[in-house]
């Protein structure tokens, strides 16, 4: 719908914004209902998410497993705060196969005043090196880690 913006803030944060042509409740559902996540949260073509656990309540678990037929990786996390339909806070880490440091993610779904949603996702990593690693893996297009990094955000 609109261009995504990506910026870094300070030494440890990365902030993504994106508008969607649907109200916040619907975009919230797309980010928290497994049957919807499995339709879009897939990374590059050729990947699927055969396992998707997402329990959007404080203390609820997250587990996403991706596969490209030949191999795969997974991510786990826990929700800290859920204010449906406008805000979630969770922590997550990827297994590549060793776990990456926790990524603390606040996602806001705000009414954009025109029937759509402005999503703002603020990721906070433990340190600058970890943030760099997370963003960096996107360069290795075609490699498993690129998909992993993508999913830090989703």
């Amino acid at each position: 719908m609109s261009k995504l913006t990506l910026r870094t803030e300070g030494d440890t944060q990365a902030i993504v914004t994106r508008r969607f042509a649907a109200p916040p409740a619907r975009v919230f559902d797309a980010h928290t209902k497994p049957e919807l996540l499995q339709k879009w949260c897939l990374g590059p073509d050729g990947w699927t998410m055969p396992v998707c656990i997402c329990e959007p309540h404080p203390g609820g678990n997250i587990r996403y497993e991706w596969s490209n037929g030949a191999g795969g990786f997974h991510l786990t996390g826990e929700f800290l705060t859920v204010e449906k339909p406008n805000r979630t806070v969770h922590v997550e880490r990827m297994f590549l196969p060793d776990p990456t440091p926790d990524n603390h993610v606040e996602t806001r779904f705000d009414d954009d005043g025109a029937g759509g949603t402005l999503m703002t996702m603020t990721m906070t990593l433990p340190d600058a090196a970890t943030r760099k690693m997370m963003l960096d893996t996107g360069m290795a297009d075609g490699m498993e880690v690129s998909y992993a990094r993508l999913e830090t955000v989703l």
Partner: peptide, 16 residues
């Protein structure tokens, strides 16, 4: 990084 994210979000646009 942006490109990879956009692939997911354009799929989400279609789903929405």
């Amino acid at each position: 990084f942006r490109e990879v994210l956009e692939r997911n979000y354009s799929r989400l646009d279609n789903l929405l």
